[in-house]
Simulated assay, not measured.
Amino acid sequence: MTNIYLNRWFSVSYHYMNMIRDNPDGKRFTFYGTHPDINHLSLQACDYWEQEPVLHGTEYVDYAVDFCRRNKIDIFIPRLKMLEIAKEAHRFDAIGTKVMVCRDVELLESLLEKDKFYESLQGTGVVPIPEYFVVENARQFKDAYETLVAGGHKVCFKPTDSEGGMGFRIIDNEMDALANLYSWVSLSVPFEQAYRTLSSVENFPKLMVMELLEEDEFSIDCLSDSDGKLLVAVPRRKSTGRIYVMDDIPELTDIARKVADRCRIPFVFNIQVKYNKGVPKLLEINPRMSGGLFITCLTGVNMPYLAVKTIQGQAFEPPIPEFGVKASYLELPIVMKDRE
């Protein structure tokens, strides 16, 4: 029996735990989870759970180490505080817990700060980078916007350290403000509104102001060995609504291989790209399982379980995805176990 711990994950970790649990080798696992919300859906797939305190820095690592020690955790798959955990990974080694995290702290820091990672890839030929500027005040914001517009681009912006789509906005000066109030919540904002809001403070947390990428968006879910050598990459295209398509796109698997060769990210990671004028340009790289990985795994590649085998040092043949899969998902009602 192997004990696995996931800390404060997204709700989709419910799927990942069950994918590991329902493995083709018949291996047995016990899952432990923590979250500040004791009713969070991620805990519904756990055999044991605990309400997680709100802590920061070394105090959070102290808590995670103690949790692993108390529960004899064999494998720790962190989402929250990955950087802090990576910096002190030796503490988990000392108690016999394997941590599924990138231990290259400098790389991990740059991955979590998008502007730093963009800088590190400029001119390397690994993946095209969108045109962008990093700004911290309204004057810089205005200058960046005007430069991009003069270059023929539509413009968007987002925080440098956001996760997922948090803080992402598209500048649209043609939007009808009244019609917008009667429509779905929009990611669009007129330049003058954004500029006025940002002008209300002397400085603000860093924003990336960048060219808007307007064509197909792909997530490339990747599985690597413990040394960061790429084993398999599966591009997942976001189509209309909730439809996703997994096709063999050599241009994108080549990007995945180049990223893996340069960065050596171990286990599971995700590359997000979006096309503009026929060129796939980088959005971000997540050094963890992505929110949509459970859809990618419909190609027959059980990445969560294979990552567990990898960290345990168990050999397996690199999987071959079954491409040409179109997939979607539905809400699944479940009767919740009492976590109070």
Rank of each mutant, 00 (worst) to 15 (best):
V232K: 08
E52M: 13
V105W: 06
E214I: 11
I285P: 02
G228D: 01
M210E: 15
S219H: 04
A194R: 06
A86E: 03
R237A: 10
I77Y: 14
N180R: 12
Q314E: 05
L293V: 11
D172F: 00
K98H: 12
Y145I: 13
V268M: 04
R288N: 03
L187Q: 06
K87T: 09
T240G: 02
D254S: 15
R21I: 09
E284I: 05
V335H: 10
F29I: 07
L43N: 09
E113W: 07
D176H: 01
K142T: 14
R288C: 02
L231E: 03
K142R: 15
N276K: 14
E119M: 08
I320S: 15
F76N: 03
K258Q: 08
S219R: 02
R257V: 08
S199C: 10
D261R: 12
T296Q: 00
R236K: 07
M166H: 12
E217A: 01
D115Q: 11
N39I: 02
V335T: 13
P128G: 10
S199F: 07
I311A: 07
A315D: 14
K27N: 13
T147L: 12
K326W: 11
T197D: 12
V61C: 01
V279K: 08
D227N: 13
W49L: 13
P280L: 05
